[in-house]
């Protein structure tokens, strides 16, 4: 990676009511970067599901905790444009259990367990780590060369 530029940083409450705020902002951001409409919807879905997981599983539904979200344009050196959107979500909730992060078989028709599947299907990179008492989820979506808007 040769360069990285910060596009947006947010600190938000772990309240479900904040999800639509992030979705709206991220949808606009992804469109301005030149992602296609389906790609914009995929990125928004992935981040919404990731935030939902943090609210439900890391903070156990406590709406007064903090989530940090940063959005960067990064250069990967591969793909048609070589650029990508990197999203990093950080929380100070309970440690995620890798065994519970495997989702479920889609053939099993029942409520729940779809969020992680949506994230993995929607993004090119999904990396989870924990350091200094914080969970960190890194998501990357490669920017394909549609028609990136200059100067936005």
């Amino acid at each position: 990676m040769s360069r990285s530029s910060l596009l947006l940083r947010m600190e938000l409450r772990s309240s479900p009511e904040m999800l639509c705020v992030v979705r709206n902002a991220l949808g606009e951001l992804a469109a301005k970067l030149g992602f296609s409409d389906p790609e914009c919807r995929a990125v928004v879905l992935a981040v919404d599901e990731a935030l939902t997981n943090i609210i439900r599983h890391a903070y156990l539904g406590d709406p007064e905790q903090s989530i940090e979200a940063s959005f960067r344009r990064i250069h990967l050196g591969d793909g048609p444009s070589g650029d990508a959107l990197e999203i990093v979500l950080e929380d100070s909730g309970v440690t995620a259990n890798p065994e519970k992060m495997c989702g479920r078989a889609l053939e099993d028709v029942r409520p729940g367990g779809l969020g992680l599947h949506f994230i993995r299907e929607s993004m090119d990179t999904v990396e989870f780590s924990r350091s200094n008492g914080k969970n960190q989820l890194r998501l990357v979506k490669i920017l394909h060369a549609h028609a990136p808007q200059k100067g936005s």
Partner: peptide, 16 residues
Amino acid sequence: RYIDSSGVASLVEGLK
């Protein structure tokens, strides 16, 4: 305008 996995889960519960 939008549905996430919790919305899909509600639809599945309705179906069941």
